[in-house]
């Protein structure tokens, strides 16, 4: 990766305040992009004039329009949307509640759809290209044993479907839609039994947010100009098992 792969591009990242989202935002910034972070909590102001953050709950009405407007107001344009924000509530499949379903669908699926639709409309109306990156999961295609999280898995499978469907329908407008499937990533939100977890991964180490960030930079850059509708798993070989 060079430090100019995203030069001149304006990237909007949801869930940018911590974990994988923070790693993606950092890597995009290092690659020359201007970055607008969108999260429910505002983070401390960055010392880079190319970084700004807004506090928005993406599941509320008008959130997508607010995110797009903030990017244009702050940086004059928006070139890339990265749907990273997600929630996970685990329970046995016979105990997951309707409220848990509604919450995870709203954040993990409907908000990404509305954001992507809003940004795509803007690009089409202005005859500009654009890129949408959906942060999916291993659970877009394989289920997770413990803790049980069937509803989360359903939303991640559906988000992969969204990636394919939108890539197909937006191809004629030169809008690419892609996905990353992170493996087990070390963040302050996950507290795995480290030794056991590392033994389960062919690479014998947890992934880092920067591992995902670097893949995001590639997929959102012009280097990936012929890639659309595809998911790249960044998982240290986990899915091979």
């Amino acid at each position: 990766m060079t430090d100019s792969q995203l030069d001149g591009k304006v990237v909007v990242v949801t869930g940018a305040s911590r974990g994988i989202g923070a790693g993606i935002a950092r890597c995009c910034l290092d690659a020359g992009a201007s970055v607008l972070g969108v999260s429910r909590t505002r983070i401390p102001r960055s010392d880079s004039e190319r970084r700004a953050d807004i506090s928005v709950d993406i599941t509320t009405q008008g959130a997508a329009e607010a995110a797009l407007a903030a990017a244009i107001d702050t940086f004059g344009r928006a070139d890339v949307l990265i749907n990273n924000a997600a929630v996970l509530v685990s329970a046995n499949c016979w105990e997951q509640t309707d409220a848990q379903w509604d919450s995870m669908i709203a954040t993990n699926l409907t908000a990404p759809f509305l954001l992507a639709q809003t940004f795509a409309r803007h690009w089409v109306e202005n005859e500009r290209p654009g890129t949408i990156l959906n942060i999916c999961s291993l659970e877009s295609e394989i289920a997770w044993k413990w803790p049980p999280q069937s509803v989360y898995a359903t939303t991640k499978g559906a988000l992969l479907g969204l990636t394919r469907a939108m890539a197909f329908d937006l191809a004629e407008f030169r809008i690419r839609v892609v996905a990353i499937g992170p493996g087990i990533i070390e963040t302050d939100m996950t507290t795995p039994d480290r030794d056991a977890t590392e033994r389960s991964i062919p690479f014998r180490r947890l992934g880092s947010p920067a591992d995902i960030g670097r893949a995001a930079v590639y997929l959102c850059s012009d280097e990936a100009a012929y890639v659309t509708g595809e998911i790249l798993y960044v998982d240290g070989g986990y899915k091979l098992r």
Binding site: F113, G161, R164, A167
Partner: peptide, 25 residues
């Protein structure tokens, strides 16, 4: 994917994972 089918495609992709996750548990 299929043209103009976004909600259907999304829902059926979700069904595939719902199936696998319930099966595993």
């Amino acid at each position: 994917a299929a043209a103009d089918h976004v909600a259907y495609t999304v829902s059926k992709s979700g069904v595939a994972m719902l199936t696998k996750a319930f099966a595993l548990e």
